[in-house]
Structure formats: structure tokens, C-alpha cells
Design a protein around this nucleic acid. Sequence first.
DNA 1: GCAAAAGTGTTCCAGATACACCCATGT
DNA 2: ACATGGGTGTATCTGGAACACTTTTGC
Lengths: 221, 221
Amino acid sequence: MYQYEHPHPALTTDVVIFTIRDKQLKLLLIMRAGEPYKGKWALPGGFVQQDEDLEAGARRELAEETGIAGVYLEQLYTFGAVDRDPRERVITVAYYALIPSDKIVLQAATDAEAVGWFSLDELPELAFDHQGIVDMAHERLVAKLDYSTIAFQFMPEEFTLSELQDVYEIILREEMDRRNFRKWVLALEQIEETGEERREGAHRPAKLYRVIHPGKVEIIK
Amino acid sequence: MYQYEHPHPALTTDVVIFTIRDKQLKLLLIMRAGEPYKGKWALPGGFVQQDEDLEAGARRELAEETGIAGVYLEQLYTFGAVDRDPRERVITVAYYALIPSDKIVLQAATDAEAVGWFSLDELPELAFDHQGIVDMAHERLVAKLDYSTIAFQFMPEEFTLSELQDVYEIILREEMDRRNFRKWVLALEQIEETGEERREGAHRPAKLYRVIHPGKVEIIK
DNA sequence: GCAAAAGTGTTCCAGATACACCCATGT
DNA sequence: ACATGGGTGTATCTGGAACACTTTTGC
């Protein structure tokens, strides 16, 4: 038992894990195995260990659910409404992560939970205040496309300009002119040709590009 | 005494309170009366009550230190490094607040603490990781000037365009062209003439303006 | 009349937008 | 040869930046 003179809230991290799959923006949900909200879908998350920094806790959740390390992770917001958990006062520091589409490897569900990728358009009812967390993460992501290179975090090591444009179009839900998109993205000087091409299908091969500073999200103007 | 099966961290809110005074961007610090860091300057803050939302806790701190309510307050970031407090694990949800220059009324120091406004250029050594919190709040403020109307939160009910320009110049540390500034700020359609003028000194009187949607920070451009 | 801040318009440039045709490949 | 997606250039528009003189007042 742990004793304190003043009441202490519980502290968790929850992670909104985004990826692009099947031409859709998707996020990872797990089905809750225990009460409360048993059987409801929820964000992966859990209690922060006493000797673990907040981001480390979020990365641990991420690794446990997806087996992936070293991806983009950013603190989103801290949710602490008094009644957000029916058991006790629980504060959650929410993070969001972006996973390149080629890295998706769902772990064998560690504790018999169901795990799944859901399109943002077709989310099931979520536990706790997780819908609000998802909404905020989505807003943040869309906003960051405009003034940063965050979208590159969805790309595998090598990719074509068309694939990159697809990512922008999927997240922003708007079509872009191919010539203008290419001019714009190349002018950022954040990606470079690998020198290789990808031949696939009955058409001209596409040049492959790589991110010059992988892992770094640059603020663009 | 409060008992839990798992260890729980302590939870505080700290508030970076900005205002413009003497043509400088200043923030409010209090001198710590007890250990640790006794005698060092620190951000106002304190433990979140068990039945109090996070933002409510931050507003309470703000009211206790400044006597002011109803000002702009935004969550900044949550700091939770394992060793940020030498006593026990303490997570702090940091907020920042913007106070119009005419509203500054320092409370009689509630618990015999010294309280003071400090220019960002001349901060004393701060307790805990508060310097890092201040730096992040400052960055956020500067960034938000570019894409929101957050600067209006520093203005009193009625103000001149020159006063508003002063606020921008002080925070951004750069001089602006008066004609371009006026064109730009009026095109936002977020402020309107009151119809009054302010006569002061041996020169042409200045028209007074008010914010159309006070309290609301609009995303611009 | 003079000092001091308020008020006001035009030109220029850069970055964003709109837009259509040829290229390389597999079948 | 044809269907498919990849690749490229120019004209136009628009918002930001640069820039100087007149107005109103108090003394």
C-alpha cells in the first residue's frame, strides 16, 4: 500500500496511434477486457510507472500494442475532468503517434485484448472521454500538415511523390494539383531522390524519394 | 491519510502569467517560502484539489496570486520528469495566462510570499524546471502571434492602434511599419472603432478601438 | 510655429493557383 | 496500339513588404 497525506490522482498515458492504410487515415483501438467500459473500444494506454518519464510511458504503451519503437510521438493534451473515470480521479496525459504504413505489425494481443485499426469515419463508441481525445489529435494532425513536415512521418524509407501526395489528400480530404504539389514539396528541400525508381504496373516508373532528416519534423512557413 | 494499491504521483498546476508593463513582456513570480528551493523564485502553482478540474486549479492559482478572474488561460504542456521535484514524484500541468495591462492588481501576498513582475530578459534563477516551462510558454506565445489574435488578450477594453502595435513589437522584438500593421490588423475584422478618441500630449488624438469578440482567440490566415 | 504622434496609398515582389500535354511502361 | 500513372512549364493572381508626407494637437 502507498500512503500520502494529501489525495493523489492516478496518472495514465493514452496514445492515439495514427497510420495510413487502405487509402484511409486509421487509428488503433483496443477492446477493454475489464470494467469499467468492458467490451468497449478504447485508446491504448496505462498507468505511468513511478520511475518512468511521461513520454517513456507512452512509448511503452506504443511498443506493447504495436511492437514498434522509434516513431514520431508528441504530447497532445492532458485530460483531467473530475469524473472522467468512474473509479477514482484519473488524469491522462494524451500523446499521438504516427506510424509509417510499412511498419504496421500488430503484436499478438498481450492480455487477450482485441486490437484493431479503425477509420476515423467509422469509429465505434469509445470508452471514457476517448472520443474527445481522438478529435483533438485529429485536429492537431490536420493543423500541423499546414505548417510542418509532420506528414513525412507516415512515409516508409522510400516513397514516390504520388504516395506522398496521397497522404496529404487523405488527411486533408481534398484533391491537390499534381504539378503544384510537387513544386511545393520539393521546394521545402526536405526530401531527396534516392536515384532508384519503382516499376509497378503498366506505366512509367516513379522516382523514389527519401526524407533527408528522418524523425525530425520541421516547421515550414 | 490516503492509501492506494499502486503508487500515485502528486499533481500540480503551474501558471506562467504574462503581461505587458513598462514596454516589456513580464511574468509573475513568487518567492518560495518553504523547502525545497526556499528563497528561490518560482511560478505560482499548487496542488490540484481532488474535486477540481485542471483548468479550475490553474484559475484558482491565478486568482490567488493576482486577484484576477476571466482572463485568457491555455494549457501549455505537462511536465513529468521523474526527478523534477526532490521530494516525491510530482507531475505539473503547466498553463499560461495573458493579463491586460490595466488589470494588474497584485493581491496582498497570501502566505507572506514575495511576489513580483519580471522582464523575460532579467529572470532570476528559477526553482525546479520552471525555466524550461517559461521558455516553452514564451515560444508558444510568440508562435501564436503569427496565426491567431492572442495578442488582443493583452489589451484593455479600449486601446489605440499604436498601443496594439507596441504589444506586437515588444513580443516579437521587431519594429513594424505602421501603415502595413494597420492595414493588416484592420483587415482581420476583429477590432472596431469605439467612436471615441484619446487626446494625450501635444499631438493628434488617436482613435480608440475595441475587440469585437473579447475573450475569443481567433485563428487567422 | 514647432515638436510629437496619428493617419493614410501606391508600387513591387514572391509565393500560390490554375491549367494541358508528353513520357515510359506492361499487356 | 492503347491504357495507365509519372513527369513537366507558363500565365495569372494575391497577399506581404517597402516606402514618405500630411494632419491634429499642446505648448
